[in-house]
Write a protein that binds this DNA or RNA. Structure first.
Lengths: 308, 308
DNA sequence: ACCTGAACACCGTTCAAGT
DNA sequence: ACCTGAACACCGTTCAAGT
């Protein structure tokens, strides 16, 4: 029997654990949210959050982006699959990509990936010289997912839109990729170099001199990345505080409201949050501006007259 | 007397240590580079690198960006300054900013900053709730360094150029700032919000609808940041491998050359490295493209006709 | 009550011991 | 020789013991 002094959050933990054990909650099912825990057990938000955190720590449940907290799949039954497949670079990288996709960059640690593969941390180093190299390999497989077509659509504008949108989609699909790219010397990832090469080719023969072509090809992807990074930080913040921590967002809201109330930011306060959150809309806006700028440059042979 | 089995790099370490002790090399003086060590002692590059790394580890010398490796200032003599000034948020943040400016983001750890201030790691938490909050405070003081003028120069173009260039300079001056900004929810740094507010105001009254104004104001700084981040990673890479590790760059060069030799990247191979390295040139290019795009939008009332 | 050292639960990687 | 566990030198932060 449980002692009377058992902390309340542990009571909730065992209750939910029981539901899972009895099969009331099956793998993939949503576990009660923090909000509904506060109602069901009459506890504070902090207690509910702590209970879910404990279940997560035990591996019984996991936060799934956009779907709340769900029951985890039970650990692989080893009898079924007779021998572990050999440890290969491919398997390591795939495991790392899956972890990063689901939980962000900070989920990729040598020790964690090794544990997930059932080997000691040092075994990874037979296939990869360092964590940096692992990240580089992750980038390679990501870029390989969406090869650029050859020769691509006709016209420079369609071509540039295509590379940029391809990169944008890669960044959205892999919320760790943008920061990985900006932390790595591109020269070390041939698949990223291929994008630059493709872009340089798209800009060739338009009458721009080589310097301008180079600057264009280096500048455009950096804009895409910049925007993708803003999105990544949002996602990481959500992940870090756990899906159920509405509390945290509430307090953030309060802070922001307080700041707006000072009257220092009248324009910001009037901003439509739908526009701010429409990240694809922001991307298309930025892309249009850049390509319109280039188009003006191509039409006038020089920048349009300054008329402030 | 030293044993005959003493590793060669330690011989070099003691030699340089002696020169410092005798006052031949004074604080701020440049210590021999790896290159000149290989010549002077007739050792391999790896040995020279290791020797400098050891001296760095001992705190006798430090890598100074662009100036090679120099002799460190001796530790503060405590008798001179009678009592440590009280630990304040200001002192903590200033120490953190200095560390990050000199050695990049990863130099900022709670434990390191605490040690530098001569207190236990936990003492910082009396002034700051978490490392994230410390970073946020660092951002605040950085942004405060360059306040935006009121009302600013006449004309939207001059105004937008001013905010962008101001941010750009801040990013160059503080090579940790761009990644900090992209990792933080901007709503938590009032000084960053002030920049957005200023930008929104610069775009007001030009006949753009509020949605477009919002997108413009959010999109432009993200482009600046994207470019700044590319530069940061360069700087970090240089820092990480130590100023003297020409060896590493050489091997990188070799890899790149090998890749180019495959013929997969003819355009990239022809790129002028002066253009690639001229980061300010890239920035001005991107800024021009964006503002030209906006200008075209303002002049035509809509995007210029597509003519691919 | 205020302050902070010990401890916990992590890192990436070196090194040397095991086979 | 190949492989990898133990160990090192770090992290940020919780917790409880000290004042």
């Amino acid at each position: 029997m449980t002692k009377g002094t058992e902390p309340p959050y542990l009571r909730i933990v065992s209750a939910i654990r029981d539901r899972i054990a009895r099969g009331e909650l099956r793998p993939g099912d949503r576990v009660p949210s923090t909000r509904s825990i506060t109602r069901e057990w009459g506890v504070a938000m902090a207690t509910a959050t702590k209970a879910l955190a404990e279940l997560r720590r035990e591996g019984l449940v996991e936060a799934r982006r956009g779907a709340g907290t769900v029951v985890s799949a039970p650990p692989q039954p080893p009898p079924d699959r007779p021998a572990e497949p050999a440890l290969t670079l491919q398997r390591i990288v795939a495991t790392a990509v899956a972890a990063a996709d689901a939980e962000g960059t900070k989920a990729v640690s040598m020790r964690r990936i090794a544990a997930e593969l059932g080997v000691g941390p040092m075994s990874l180093y037979r296939h990869v010289a360092s964590k940096d190299e692992l990240v580089r390999e992750m980038m390679r497989v990501a870029f390989l997912e969406r090869p650029l077509p050859e020769p691509g659509p006709p016209g420079w504008r369609a071509k540039l839109e295509l590379v940029c949108r391809t990169q944008w989609e890669l960044y959205l699909r892999h919320p760790w990729l943008a920061s990985a790219v900006s932390m790595t010397r591109p020269q070390l990832v041939p698949e990223a170099m291929a994008h630059t090469e493709w872009t340089l080719r798209a800009l060739d023969g338009l009458g721009l001199d080589p310097d301008e072509i180079a600057r264009e090809a280096l500048t455009l992807p950096s804009m895409v990345r910049g925007l993708a990074l803003s999105r990544e930080s949002e996602a990481e913040a959500e992940e870090a505080t756990g899906v159920g921590a509405e509390q945290w967002w509430r307090s953030l809201d309060d802070q922001v409201r307080a700041l707006y109330a000072t009257g220092r930011f009248p324009m910001l306060a009037g901003l439509d949050s739908e526009i701010v959150d429409d990240i694809d809309g922001l991307f298309e806006h930025a892309l249009t501006r850049n390509l319109d700028g280039l188009q003006a440059r191509l039409e006038h042979g020089t920048a349009p007259a300054r008329r402030p």
